[in-house]
Design a protein around this nucleic acid. Structure first.
Lengths: 265, 265
DNA sequence: TCAATAGTGTCTTTGAGACACTATCGC
DNA sequence: GCGATAGTGTCTCAAAGACACTATTGA
């Protein structure tokens, strides 16, 4: 262990601290805004207008300002990027990414968040972004085990954002198992088929119809029935009972995915 | 939405950035070093030697240095504070705490981590700490629902560290359910009774002996038996089979706690 | 009528809860 | 023998998997 000069070994600086006694950082928030559309899990990305990674797609985000908390910054950016200022949108912290070289320009620590939105409006490209759109995660070049053959038309992401997106997807996949969070993806009111399609899109596997219904309906407080039914659009079919989100947040016992590897390293 | 001047709306600053165009932050790591001893979940705290919160107990931690990642900073502080430089110690990121007023001296964003150690050595108080010791979490004044009557001899923590400790405890309690992480608390080799005592200490409830054994032994890769047995120390009893940690990290299906509230707000 | 979607019934299997029982040690 | 700890056997019940079946709509 070296003995290079460091500010206040193991603790914070004294009150009369020297602003140059510790390394200054930029702190940003990155947003993984997820939705389910067209039977697929999709994420909001913006196309960068300037170097580095000019032209590449990246997560929306921005600096944490002087007098706001990290969570306030995330809420603010979410409203700016999606046009959704609704405070009921599910937003949670994912993880913090702080490799020294993750941004070539300066030392940046980014607190990534996951937001789950139901039926979002078309995003608008901000002043510094060439474009903004939702991308299916299956079209992105993400780290981790690749299902099937390699595709050569995958979109590459800027910075370490591919890792963040992969982490966000795993977080959401896991949370559908032991929470009622899937309801956050469904515009209200929704049918049980809607909800099952969300599980199918996020997990990539289709839960058995009958068992899925039994599980959701026996989970007290996950969904509450609403008067009326929705006629199945278009080509026939029995109208479905409508539901809204219930007060429960945990799903105990959980609804487990079938195909998760037992051992991870 | 106001239109106050901000650096690069929604993205990072340009290459020739002005260091005063975004708010400078100090970035620290805080460590929740947990262990199980004397049948209780315990955490390493240091007593502060300087204001603010002089004399109060706080989590060990320190600044992230200029050329290290956040995780490297956490590993370095863990080695400095506990004397344990073993890279096999379980260390994971917990969450990031970034309220503007969490430190009265300056704007600090802290990335909290959880470390699980088995049978740690006595901690040594660093140069800036008056003391360092492990405290049972039951002796700390933590937020959240209080079990039983209020105690008046609880230790108060500095900054927002009580919240961090409460979050760390909930993380560990949950992870014992669906991972094999409890083995990280047990010095090897260990007996199934050792492992059960860890669950008891962390959850505050005692799993049924027979069902616990059945679950752990049927979970492939959680523990691997070792030749030999440990004579029960002192007052007699049948010697117990010894085990080491297995390669599995997930516990599927999970081992659920009995008494978790179904609905959280 | 058929296709399509919604919804039910039920048999089987897995695994957890409860708890009585046996085994092996030190004394 | 006793107390203490380790370990087994087994009955019951909750819940998931599998899958056949019925119900209600539009065309």
């Amino acid at each position: 262990m070296t003995t290079r000069p460091r500010p206040q070994e193991g603790d914070l600086a004294p009150p009369e601290y020297d602003p140059h006694a510790f390394p200054p950082f930029a702190v940003t928030v990155d947003l993984a805004v997820l939705t389910v559309a067209a039977g697929a899990l999709q994420i909001l990305l913006v196309q960068r207008d300037e170097p580095p990674f000019q032209g590449a797609w990246a997560l929306p985000g921005g600096f944490v300002l002087k007098d706001e908390s990290v969570e306030e910054a995330a809420r603010r950016e979410l409203a700016e990027e999606t046009g959704l200022s609704d405070t009921t949108i599910h937003l949670e912290q994912l993880a913090t990414y702080g490799a020294p070289d993750r941004d070539p320009r300066m030392r940046v620590v980014s607190v990534a968040h996951v937001a789950l939105v139901a039926d979002p409006p078309e995003p608008v490209a901000g002043g510094d972004a060439a474009a903004a759109r939702y991308w299916p995660l299956d079209d992105l070049d993400l780290p981790g085990p690749r299902a099937g053959r390699r595709r050569h038309d995958l979109v590459s992401l800027a910075f370490d954002h591919a890792q963040i997106v992969a982490d966000a997807r795993e977080r959401v996949r896991a949370k559908l198992e032991y929470t009622t969070l899937a309801t956050a993806f469904a515009p209200e009111p929704f049918t049980l088929s809607d909800l099952r399609r969300i599980y199918t899109a996020v997990w990539g596997t289709e839960p058995d119809l009958a068992n899925f219904r039994r599980k959701v309906l026996s989970a007290t407080g996950m969904v509450v029935p609403e008067d009326g039914a929705r006629p199945s659009g278009g080509s026939g079919g029995r109208p479905a009972q409508l539901y809204r989100r219930g007060p429960a947040v945990d799903l105990r016992p959980p609804m487990l995915r079938a195909d998760v590897a037992e051992v991870r390293t």
